[in-house]
Every structure is written in C-alpha cells, then in structure tokens.
Design a protein around this nucleic acid. Structure first.
Lengths: 154, 154
DNA sequence: TTACGTGCAGTTACATTATAACATAACACA
DNA sequence: TGTGTTATGTTATAATGTAACTGCACGTAA
C-alpha cells in the first residue's frame, strides 16, 4: 500500500471515530497503521514487534490488546479466530458500513482476502440459523482455503 | 446422553477407526467419551480436569492435545476456533460422512448446535470462494449466535 | 521365540496468546 | 482549577498450545 493510500485510510478512520464520538488517539492510530501496512494478519505480539520496527518505540502487549479491542468495536480491525491474528478492515474507505464479511484465509501462505458476503448468501445463512432457534451475532465468516498461488505446490 | 447411547456411539467410533486402519486406544476412547458426555464444548485443559473426574486418573495436556488431533483427523471431534474448545461430532452415529457442518455457538451460555449445511448453501459458498481464486479446505462453519433461551435476558 | 520397526503415550520444558488488577496520565467540561 | 472519565503504564499471571526427547506396546517377519 502506498503512503498516500495509507494516510488517506487513516484520515477516514479518524472521521469514523469522531462521528462515533470516540477518541482516535496517537497510539490507536499507530497500531492501526501497522496493521494496514502489513500484507498479512498479525498476532498481538507480532504487532508489538512491528510497532517497534516502525516507530522505534515500545508498546506493551497489554496496550495492544486494549487498542485492538477498541479498533474492533469501531470495525476498523477484525480478529481472525482461525489463527488468532488481527487484520485491518479492507473496507474502511470504500464502504465501511457494508454487511457481513467473508474471509478467505490461505492456510499455506497466510494471505487473507476479505469480501462482502452476498445478500442472498447472508439471507439463507441467517434463515438456517433462525430455523434452529438462534439469532446470529457473528461479525463475519472465516473460511480456511488454499489460494491459487499455493495450490500447485501441494 | 444415556449410558446406552454413549456406549453405542463409542462402538461406532471404534468401527470407524478400524475401517480407517487406525488404532482406537483406551486413552483415545476415554477422551472421546468425556467429550461425548459433556453438554458443552471443553477446552483441552477442561478436558484434563473432566478426565480426572470421570476416571480418577491423570492425563497430561500434551496427551490430550495429541489425542484431540487424532480424533479430529477421524472427524470424531471438531475444534471450535471461536472459543478454542472441542466438541464431539454429533453425527458419529447417524451420518458420519455428511458434508460440511455448521455450528451455532451461543455466546451467552456456550451451548452449541451442529447441523449439516444445506447443499445449496455449501454450493453458493464454494462458488463465492472459487470466484475469488481460492479453494476451500474449511471443515466447517462457525457462527456466533444467541440461543432463544438466552435472548430474552439480554 | 526373538529382534526390529512403528506408532502411542509419558515427561519436561517452553512458547504463545490473553486477561486481571491496580497505578498514573491525559482529556473534557463544569 | 477541580473533578469525573477515559486511556495508557506496569506487573503479574492465567490459559492455550508445541517441541523434543524417552520409554513402552504392539504387530510383523526372520
């Protein structure tokens, strides 16, 4: 991602937070920037390391976890339970208020792609869930996959 | 679950393993039994505790993890990444070779329901995945939900 | 029967992921 | 300027998961 794109995405995030009436502090911004800059999802501790690399400045895991909680609430960051890693939302700019996301996680190389879930798919999923007597609260769907670059090697 | 049901399920598991040419050892059976008997999913360490309660006999976490790996390979047990817990497959008896499962996990009480995913749903999901250039390897789908018993309380 | 290979389980140590609890700093607003 | 609220600092520890090596049990073939 280009520096311009990054800074423009961060600007958008700032607006999202101020609209929501919550604070987009310097630390929160820096953590988000590290995640946006990373081509693959990071664990909280990897984020600690990357933060050090980017800013020559220490941040503790405890702070990272708290900031990640905040960023998740604002839907700027998603947690992938599949591998306990965190990834910035890929729709901060284009359509931050899209519906449910679907993550394809390559189990070989760790690449992740986030796409918006088609309405019909979400509909039939939700229906299936409520037929069974539940109501859905999942923020997203995680699918373990093999990406096309990795597939030939297996 | 009644003792008869449990023992008949274990018998089926035994047959599944012998058909697959793998050993269904005493430890593996006991671990599976603990999981089958549990009304809610268990973490590996909760399993260690329950094992002690059931059999007045210690098992180490390392062994539990190894055995869980084995049981997952034979599809007798599923791991829920959502909460890092393990649950016995609810289709050991009826239709062990069903398709992809869909888990509804109540975030309030921890109850889990496993249902087979409808063919069309699986189809449209798979299609969406391959459109994006991936092929799916996920053994199942996890959906965070609220069950109807918990919903009124929120 | 014995010897051998394979895979299962025991054991220790450690790595990774996550949270509790309390202290201090920064900010917002009367 | 004081006061309540939110964010961050700090330490400790809980919970989850894996590496690496050891010994044992079981099947198989000489």
């Amino acid at each position: 991602m280009s520096p311009e794109q990054l800074s423009s995405t961060v600007q958008t995030a700032k607006h999202i937070c101020s609209s929501a009436g919550v604070r987009f502090t310097e630390k929160r911004q820096k953590v988000l920037e590290v995640l946006i800059a990373s081509p693959i999802p990071l664990s909280a501790y990897e984020l600690v390391d990357q933060y050090q690399v980017h800013y020559k400045e220490e941040i503790r895991a405890m702070s990272v976890y708290r900031i990640l909680d905040f960023l998740q609430e604002e839907q700027l960051v998603h947690k992938l339970n599949f591998n306990n890693k965190f990834i910035s939302c890929s729709h901060i700019q284009c359509c931050h208020d899209h519906g449910m996301s679907q993550f394809m996680i390559c189990t070989e190389c760790g690449q992740v792609e986030e796409v918006a879930m088609p309405k019909e798919l979400l509909h039939s999923l939700t229906q299936r869930v409520s037929e069974s007597g539940y109501s859905m609260v999942s923020p997203h769907l995680e699918l373990a996959c093999i990406c096309h670059s990795c597939e030939p090697q297996i």
